[in-house]
Nucleic acid binder design. Sequence first.
DNA 1: TCGGAGTGGTACATTGAAGTCCTGTTCCGA
DNA 2: TCGGAACAGGACTTCAATGTACCACTCCGA
Lengths: 191, 191
Amino acid sequence: MSGNPALKDHIAAGILDAAAAVLAERGEAASMADIAAAAGVGRATLYRRFPNREALLQALARAAVQELDDRLAEAGLDTAPYPEALARLTRAFVATGSKYIAFMRSGHKPIEPAEVDRRLGEPLRELFRRGAADGSLREDLPPEVLLALFVGLIEAALVTATQGGLGVERASAAAISVFLDGTRDPRRRNH
Amino acid sequence: MSGNPALKDHIAAGILDAAAAVLAERGEAASMADIAAAAGVGRATLYRRFPNREALLQALARAAVQELDDRLAEAGLDTAPYPEALARLTRAFVATGSKYIAFMRSGHKPIEPAEVDRRLGEPLRELFRRGAADGSLREDLPPEVLLALFVGLIEAALVTATQGGLGVERASAAAISVFLDGTRDPRRRNH
DNA sequence: TCGGAGTGGTACATTGAAGTCCTGTTCCGA
DNA sequence: TCGGAACAGGACTTCAATGTACCACTCCGA
């Protein structure tokens, strides 16, 4: 094979995709042999790309966060009104699919919580602040509770979309609709 | 020690409580030694009560489902109107705490899906049918999607209540409020 | 056609947890 | 006070997964 680094990255990305699928399904119980088999690659090759299991899990987590970060960046969240921005953010999460599920089922271990919060939690909180400011979001629930409930809805939609056969669009739409209606400011319940 | 079987059950229950706490926190990664230490019991004693790890996990899962089942039975779901019944059901889930979290983080593995569905899923679907029949629940989302989203909310509330410091009551109230408002039939949005 | 880099397969050592067994101790009931 | 049951602790074996090392093969470029 040529020394083309872009190709190597591409191969590594393919391995990560396969790893995401098997880790999303079987969780931490999946062995390196399982992952290699799922990627259609020899166990030795897997260890050639990632020196050990922890490195692979960390690379996978970083890929998940990076992909989501990219999707959020190109979603133009701050140029859209709150409900539309929330919808785009939700679709970004759900579209990340197995990669995010694997990251979520790892308990967010491989990455420092501060970084996850900065790159994923903060955009969400910023959105909530805007929603509260323009009167679209109820303010009787603390932001952390809103965040937790929203993430719960997103993760349910993610699993439904990826493993339940429902598509990204419909699963996202359901979660968005329930959250928006469920957290609308009561003084503005004119639909 | 006496051969009092009730006492033995009580000791076993104490071990299961400790196991639930450590498994809820560290997931499947927790070893038998960890569990024994958390229960304040020797590793040999742990193996005396539960012949192997799988037996312990299964006993824990059964205890979680049984406890939840009992709570649902005494909640009188079918004598209360839909919103109140849903609130009671939610509090029952959230009050089960670490035991349910451990069960949920095990991927519901130790128990057959059909049994879980019959004892936990079916009461929920029955409630949804009633809500739809009396016009309290929107019908534009398939029941399985409603179920998935509701479970997502419940699990988020469960973690927030148990590990996030918020109490059972407030976490449950938040989840119920968001779900009821978020899934109200649009034709009846008179608050 | 040839050389080398990358690959798959496999054999191997290492590690950590599961599960078994034994010993000395404690504690309860008779 | 005594006997037995259950206990904690630890030594031990087994086993599966991790990580390492090596070899033969393939494929690509020169």
